[in-house]
């Protein structure tokens, strides 16, 4: 078990090195002229030369690669080509908002998805099962950015129930002292006991959160359903039933426990997908997370920022995969 985990961590590090190499390759070899961005459109030839030196582009590619690796080890993702701020610092400022969104979306996915999956497994091939199947295929087929606009249309324009975007209402931002402990407003407002701000923040996070939780809800419910159905067909369940244990008890006590591993893995893996979805949605809800950051970087062609976010996303993805694998390995039925 321990040997497997160590081996798995080592291979993750290798993959990480590969990821870094690819991002390096993309940022240095694809035609992009970062020095023009850095020095400005009207820069003279000398200024461009100076910019190349500042960005380290005057050195040979292998040299640049070594420097790049060294910088990354110190957590340095380079500087934004637009405002010359370190990308790492900017990311640190934008990450909490995204994290808050993704975590809440996953809470939704677990609270709604798992019961829905259990229920569809119980009522296999009945109406609700079909509905949940259509819902989950539908959730994968919907363009997330469109769902965001659609929800704004319904809940903001027509029903006027929820705000159109931002993390807090304007009055709250101006008149209240918004705390910053973890950077996640829902947690911070609770910690400082500002309930009115908490409610305001919750009303703001609701629409973006529903938008990005559709996909994981569909996925989690389908995975729970299929894992449960497979387990319900196993011999020990039949044995339990023939002893006269009730169906409910078999389902909740014996079957569900064994399906948790599979579901957890899928939850972890779908987090990567959800992270990308937030990138498409945040700008629509003016949510100040890394999604807005990368949309902004894309429009201003800030390559360092784009590469920084890509690397950050890949690292999250690799770590989630690692956790999922270790989780699966902790299942005693999996012999390693």
């Amino acid at each position: 078990m321990l040997k497997y985990i160590v081996k798995r961590i080592l291979s993750s590090i290798l993959v990480l090195l590969g990821v870094v190499t690819i991002t390096f390759f993309i940022s240095r070899v694809l035609p992009s002229n970062p020095e023009v961005r850095w020095a400005g459109q009207r820069a003279t030839e000398e200024q461009l030369e100076q910019a190349r030196i500042e960005l380290g582009l005057d050195k040979s590619l292998p040299e640049q690669y070594i420097i790049y690796l060294g910088d990354l080890l110190q957590g340095d993702l380079g500087k934004s080509l637009n405002n010359h701020q370190p990308v790492t610092e900017e990311l640190a400022r934008y990450v909490p908002a995204t994290l808050e969104l993704v975590i809440l979306a996953f809470l939704f996915a677990i609270i709604i998805g798992i019961p829905l999956g259990i229920y569809s497994a119980k009522k296999k091939d009945k109406l609700l099962d079909h509905c949940s199947r259509i819902f989950s295929i539908g959730a994968v087929s919907l363009p997330t950015f469109w769902v965001a606009l659609f929800l704004q249309l319904i809940f903001y324009k027509i029903l006027n129930m929820l705000p159109i975007g931002g993390r807090l209402s304007v009055e709250a931002t101006i008149f209240s002292d918004v705390p910053s402990i973890t950077g996640m407003l829902l947690v911070d407002t609770l910690l400082t006991g500002q309930l009115d701000l908490f409610v305001d923040a919750f009303r703001h996070i609701l629409l973006p959160c529903i938008t990005i939780s559709l996909y994981p809800i569909g996925l989690v419910s389908r995975m729970t359903r299929s894992a449960l159905l497979e387990i319900l067909g196993e011999d020990y369940i039949t044995a339990g039933r023939s002893y006269g244990l009730s169906d409910t008890k078999m389902l909740w006590k014996y079957a569900l426990k064994n399906s948790v591993g599979t579901t957890a893995t899928d939850v972890a893996l779908s987090m990567g997908y959800t992270l990308t979805n937030t990138f498409l949605v945040e700008a629509i809800f003016s949510w100040p997370g890394i999604g807005s950051y990368i949309s902004n970087a894309v429009t201003t062609l800030d390559y360092n920022a784009i590469i920084g976010v890509t690397l950050f996303g890949a690292v999250c993805y690799i770590v989630l995969n690692l956790i999922a694998d270790i989780f699966v390995a902790s299942d005693p039925r999996v012999r390693l």
């Binding site: 290798l14 940022s27 990308t276 990138f279 894309v298 390559y303 996303g313 890949a314 995969n321």
Partner: peptide, 22 residues
Amino acid sequence: RITDVFLSFPPLLLAIAMVALL
């Protein structure tokens, strides 16, 4: 191993980075 590396980027993100630079 090369495919593993490519698969460890979140979907879409690698494409975003590549088009942004291309």
